[in-house]
Design a protein around this nucleic acid. Sequence first.
DNA 1: CTGAAAGCGCTTACAG
DNA 2: CTGAAAGCGCTTACAG
Lengths: 330, 330
Amino acid sequence: MKDIAQKVGVSTALVSYVLNNQKVNRINKELAQKIKDTAKELDYRPNQLAKSLKTAKSLTIGLIVSDISNPFFSNIARIIQEEADNSKYTVLFGSSDESAHKSAQLADTFINRQVDGLIIAPSEGAEEQLAYLQRREIPFVLIDRYFPALETNYVALDNYRAAYEAVSHLLDKGYTRIGMVTHETGLFHLKERRYGYEGALKDRGIAPHPDWVKEISLKQAKTAIPEVVDQLLGLVPRMDALLMGSNTLADLTVKHIHALGYKVPKDLAILTFDEVESLDLFYAPISYLRQPLPEMGRLAIQVLLDNMEKNNTQLSQIQLPAELVLRAST
Amino acid sequence: MKDIAQKVGVSTALVSYVLNNQKVNRINKELAQKIKDTAKELDYRPNQLAKSLKTAKSLTIGLIVSDISNPFFSNIARIIQEEADNSKYTVLFGSSDESAHKSAQLADTFINRQVDGLIIAPSEGAEEQLAYLQRREIPFVLIDRYFPALETNYVALDNYRAAYEAVSHLLDKGYTRIGMVTHETGLFHLKERRYGYEGALKDRGIAPHPDWVKEISLKQAKTAIPEVVDQLLGLVPRMDALLMGSNTLADLTVKHIHALGYKVPKDLAILTFDEVESLDLFYAPISYLRQPLPEMGRLAIQVLLDNMEKNNTQLSQIQLPAELVLRAST
DNA sequence: CTGAAAGCGCTTACAG
DNA sequence: CTGAAAGCGCTTACAG
């Protein structure tokens, strides 16, 4: 800016006004043009850091997910970055690896960089950090997960209803001994899936039995699935349908029962959260609950921008419906 | 900093020295401790923007890929962010959507934010923009693709050799009429695959025939594959093996020939770049060329940091070998 | 219509 | 051992 001002023979103030299209009607048109031309000629690039320092707006948002290489999050990230870009925002990102500590560290780094807001898929134990963000009045919106005890913005799946509808569908189809295999976790959004499963059974007069639900840690899924599935199939009378908590679990389960010789859906119906691409060629394509990822991303960024720009203090707690995609497995 | 200085009764200069652990042995230990305690007490957060403005180092790098939701890139992004974080760098990212224009825009945005360096998966036509970066002496390293005419850092697959080895393997297995289905593009790294394919045939005394190679645009893959595969299978004598340029193409091709009733690998052997998860349950698991994604990401960030920090002007042009994973399809 | 000046939150060469 | 002061590249209230 100094160089431009010098070359044109004006103050940097004028250069700033012109280049930011301010006070347009009060500035000599020819002079303004000359300033613009000179800026182009010198290949002038505004230093966004200096700008941000002065204006106290970094035009930057931070995105913290548990694993950016997970298609679930990378699909959301894609949308978020795109929409942010359209609104002149740049996105910083990081993976928390399901560690609340790592997540907090990332958030701190981003805060030091003066992000205007954060989008977070919080891990177990993130409550404290989120409360801190609230105290510092840093706008943020949670995605995928949230904490019912915390008054925060969030955009998530209506997991209760999704599981409820899945089980209702199975009941409609005549299955009555419906088991569930899901992840072992304290995260509320996953508990909701179990509640939805149980709620649907109860509403049809079936008492959910604890033995029908298996919770296993994601890390040990590969070794635990055969054992757990064997248990469910060993019950008398046998389970005739399973609701799976994730595509990974569904993949392992189907491969296991396929190896055992059970037929889908005759011997066992399968319904899962999220699509299982690895089973594309399975003779019975798997019915699944599709999460509206693009919409989740779009809403998350929209809620955040609203909060940031309009200093909106209104809480947005959005639960999106899953789409039940029916195929041969049910 | 002002608040801390005031509260302790020292200058901000001293606060800065203490908080950055500078001149440790020249500063009164007790005073230093008091400053640190006060910083913690006031929940002091250094403003990284101000720091960067002063030091002319933003500790920020930009990552531009064609699509962050593509597992290929999201896996690399995961590593890059992690390694960057370990070196105190923060990552800005964006998707270029294979548009050189969008890529240039993102680069401009990142440059205005004073990134210390860039990692780019360049699209067709990116040469000009890359030359610009060189003129401005902004450190960058290309991933996945590169331009042979440009003297830039890059980390990519040795596509020639990968294709060469794939075809050599097929020849070793007794296949002689080997076709190739690949993407239609001007990008050098994809051309290399064709050259490798042709080179392997020639070295075994087989003249590559133009009819044996089909190039189709990724967008029309779904509709074009059946037609193209039919052509290859319609040749007399028939093709007995196919090298596929990507997992998407392989997926579509296998499903098509499966529907036609051809047996793999008896009627037709299949070998592809990248793993095809959607064919997990196919009776003949597909042999593939595995790209070392974590290593690519790690090397990319390493080369970039080297260039940035040690002001390294040495060119790093790295071609990584693919791993030929042999399964039943060949 | 235009400019001088202060200030955003830091760092650092220099002086003492 | 510590501080006064300049300056990074911008913006903007104020004066004229």
